[in-house]
Amino acid sequence: MALKMEELEDRQTRTYQILSQRRSTFALRWFRFRKNRLAVVGLVLVVLLVVAAVFAPIVAPYSYTKPNFLETFKGPSARHWFGTDSLGRDVFSRVIWALRSACIVGFGAEAVELTVGLMIGALAGYLGGLVDNILMRIVDIVYAFPSFLFSIILVMLLGHNIWAILIAVSATSWVGMARVVRGQVMRLKQSGFIESARSMGAGNWRIIRRYLLPNSMGPVLVAVTFGIPANMMTEAGLSVVGLGIEPPTPDLGQMIIDGQQAMFSYPYLMWTPALLFAITLISFTFVGDGMRDAFDMKGKR
């Protein structure tokens, strides 16, 4: 009886230790992240940009569709920060709305990729053997696909709306995530604590859910952070080649291409959306870089 009490106390203290360790791990990661100044700047910008995109209806001062023929091709001013376009529409408002589309596709497609990649990667890595072999051959084949051409064909198939583009963007990019997850799972499978969990009677699913996923988070989160801007690039890229979201919904790629038509007379129509887009992408990259620092993955690609 006395022994049992001791055992219980022992277990309690160990739980506390683990809990406090978790806290300090997070604190350590946050500390490492903050040490990267650019990452902090990036994080602030990402938050600002995403908030602006989410609250586009409130943030955008003007309508993004309504033409105003009295105010066409007005350069940047206090009233129209980024000027107005050929139909007199406020470029700033359109950019904010376009950012919204970019965010929907960027985050949405990343969610799809994460789900598919986690499932396939975890299955392949954890089960190994034949399943792993088959799944990885599929991943290899998808890797060989000319991905952007497939996105174009998919958009052609599904239509030029935002959801079709979301699917088209994520259709081939989940493989990267699957590889990352598989690598992590394989690594963890070889470490001792899975063995001990199994010896205590934990089932496959429980092991995946409670042990593997939480411990392979770092590289996955980093991949997500870099995946979002990559998706945005594909999304806008589709518009650059004329196969993106259909007008009048604003889109950064489309605005850049439209601006290019008039770049000699009204260059601001081209560079304002391009600049905002560049800032968005760079901010995400800085955050991703900081995440790498936080999870101590520098030098590993």
Partner: peptide, 20 residues
């Protein structure tokens, strides 16, 4: 830093600024 900026921005955005 320039290298990171380069990776972060796609060719078509770089093209915009080069054209400009």
């Amino acid at each position: 830093l320039v290298a990171i900026l380069g990776t972060a921005i796609p060719a078509y955005v770089i093209a915009v600024f080069l054209m400009l």
